[in-house]
């Protein structure tokens, strides 16, 4: 029995589903780009990969990551989560937001160890990501 009330409910549900289909991906996109966070993740992952690609095993590298780490701290991302190295897949993973991260691969066949963020003492507060490049250990 096609009562009018049932028909309204059905159409409202369909409208809601359609709205969610557009709104959810949009919210994910907007939150990922909030304050340019996704841009900074992309930028740092590529620049760190550049440094690794030209590095020789045995080097220690320190890079200024002040701008990016400030984004991470603003979004309550812990220091240990902001930069990670996946030595199995040769990837640097940068995370400055709660709901995602950005990964980029480097072709230099080395392992990255002992990475940490340190606060350099100086005229202004500078955060540096330091890591050591070693021969592949597999």
């Amino acid at each position: 029995m096609n009562r009018k009330g049932e028909s309204n409910l059905e159409s409202n549900v369909i409208y809601m589903v359609l709205f969610l289909l557009v709104a959810v991906p949009l919210l994910v996109f907007v939150s990922a780009n909030n304050g340019g966070t996704a841009f900074w993740e992309d930028f740092y992952s590529k620049e760190i990969s550049r440094a690794i690609n030209v590095a020789e095993p045995g080097s220690k590298i320190c890079l200024d990551v002040t701008k990016g780490s400030a984004e991470g701290f603003d979004n309550d991302v812990s220091e240990s989560e902001m930069f990670r190295f996946d030595n199995v897949n040769n990837e640097i993973i940068v995370k400055f937001r709660q709901n995602g991260a950005t990964a980029y691969s480097y072709f230099n066949g080395v392992d990255i160890v002992d990475w940490e963020i340190i606060q350099a003492v100086g005229g202004r507060e500078i955060n540096q990501l330091c890591f050591r490049v070693v021969e592949r250990q597999r």
């Binding site: 359609l18 991906p25 949009l26 550049r50």
Partner: peptide, 26 residues
Amino acid sequence: FFLICLVLGGGIALGIVIFFGEGYNF
């Protein structure tokens, strides 16, 4: 309704891309 959703969503997404750029070409 669907068209309005798409136009609003597309507009917001486009605005973000224009403002922040399309990423870092490496």
